[in-house]
Design a binder for these strands. Sequence first.
DNA 1: CACCGACCCGCAAGCGCTTCCAGAGTCGTT
DNA 2: AACGACTCTGGAAGCGCTTGCGGGTCGGTG
Lengths: 354, 354
Amino acid sequence: MPGPPRVTLDDVARRAGVSTATASRALGDHPHVAAATRARVREAAEALDYVASPEATRLAGGPTGRVAVLVPHPSRWFFGELLEGLEAALRAADLDLVIFRVGGPEERAAFFARLPARRKVDAVVVLAFAVDELEHARLASLGVDVVAAGGRVASYPSVGIDDHVAGRQAMDHLVHLGHRRIGMIAVGDTQRSGAGPSGKDVGCLAPEPDGRTSAWRAALGDAGIAPDDELVVTVPWGGEGGADGMARLLGLRSPPTAVFAHDDETALGAIRTLRRAGLRVPEDLSVIGVDDHPLAALTDLTTVAQPVRAQGRRAGELVVAALRGELADGLPPAELLPTRLVLRGTTSPPGAPR
Amino acid sequence: MPGPPRVTLDDVARRAGVSTATASRALGDHPHVAAATRARVREAAEALDYVASPEATRLAGGPTGRVAVLVPHPSRWFFGELLEGLEAALRAADLDLVIFRVGGPEERAAFFARLPARRKVDAVVVLAFAVDELEHARLASLGVDVVAAGGRVASYPSVGIDDHVAGRQAMDHLVHLGHRRIGMIAVGDTQRSGAGPSGKDVGCLAPEPDGRTSAWRAALGDAGIAPDDELVVTVPWGGEGGADGMARLLGLRSPPTAVFAHDDETALGAIRTLRRAGLRVPEDLSVIGVDDHPLAALTDLTTVAQPVRAQGRRAGELVVAALRGELADGLPPAELLPTRLVLRGTTSPPGAPR
DNA sequence: CACCGACCCGCAAGCGCTTCCAGAGTCGTT
DNA sequence: AACGACTCTGGAAGCGCTTGCGGGTCGGTG
């Protein structure tokens, strides 16, 4: 399968009647190339349907035009959405996106040990997971720019949401409705959360209070309610986790009248448990999540919406800026996109139909 | 950001006391290299933590080690899952996955017009969408192998499920429960469905009866029920589409007692409409979908499960085989993975509580 | 004991592109 | 009118690796 005869830069140059060097400069937007010449070369390239060989470009010192993205779970809505935004932004800048799945600890270890992205990309985007010191060092050894999206990793430019604020939006809503005993289903999946909002460390492997959980505590405190740690259960990510968490909460001597779930899928799991237990939502128990997953609208779930795709897009833009060397030095920028409470049918005042 | 000083093959060769050529052959498992020499070179490479520059390797005649994947909607579970399986299979073969989003017609046109993958990849994987003749030609001009996953594209090796069989599993279940008036919510999104099961054409843009819809008709026929075309509504993909479809079905003079939705998300949308209309599921109306989306389990939705990730993985394996030139000539293989009815709580005999 | 393969190995020619360096014009200035 | 300062372009040297080709070595034959 030799494919069609490849068009080389020399072909373009010849057709445009210039040298290879000039052709290269013309195509590369270098200064000191007459506008007319540049146009002629462009035209020739266009006519020949020329595409530079990434290998040769890179070998000769140029950029690869590729960026790697480290994604824990491509099949989850959150990551898919992030990926979609990222791809759009990078594609607009003519960059290709190479994906590397780093799900479980083994895959993760394998990735950082072998560093398969080595010398293949110009930048790396880390999607929503904490990076420990060792990993940070390995990444640094790649010698490329790194950007984090969907979560914060101190020391890298990043874009995400303020988990604490999002958590407050959810909790305050519950508190305003009159709930006093509010449970929280936290997710222990470190893959999912980034470093804490004030995380000074490179990463956080210890389950240091994540923003959403700290919001639970703070909201309660502000309302003059003593936080009861029994009301916080930590489960693995996913619907089943949420279901388990709810079951545990229901098993308490004094169950909550409302539950703040780490995210929508967890919330949906919690709701299934409630339904199976014969409890009505929101009459008997209110539930709120975070994300505004498309299925939240379908299941009438009250939630705190976050602009996921926009986070991906913005991260892509940061990458482009970094590659152009346009990123200001000093503190890496940490952009926080706004979240918004979306009222639907799974929350109501305690003990009262909506 | 120059990164660490790179170790070249020459360094390794020098350390092993051989020429670059020999070092290359030793590392590349070529014949005609003395075992002792090979060992010495290996050792030197190991000691120096040598990693070949993929660029140089490729430039010198090798393959790129990259494969492109064309995906319509990365954020949808179905595609994410496909991607995940694909990535795993390719990574195992040391191939990188470059993603190209080809959602709307414009993006699609842009992709095929610019053919950005040209010379950048060794193969292309098309995820679950039909390819028209023009596109097929463009793809062919890339001179690379093409594989389809999650849907069939005649003329390319592919892996997917038999939509007709899956549809029959769903429909037969409904028929066996005693339903006589069964509606179908089909999805008009051509992105989602591949060519019809008997598609001889390269692609199918016209909404030729897709497998699931033909199954609706066939199952009814086999049960001695005259198919009423009024009961088939076509909607755009997604929960909202499903909700609309259900509303239309409910508006019929004689509404169905059961509904077969194209997929789980559509089914979930349909259920929302039912709930809002005050109808109970499955007591008043049964609903079944296809996919076994993780949220189907959470919402207790009866469905026909399909092994999505496996489809991706298998497609990856086909790519690897193709790259090795191991694919038998002649008819491109079209693998069909099995689907399975998953009984849950949204179906029951008509007019009777479960 | 001379001769022929089989085996290994080194030399060197690229793969396609970027970039340093220098040459040839073109202007503007004193 | 002459000279420096630029602007634009071409020549050529790699980037790191693969591979065809030819020259040594060695063991095995007649």
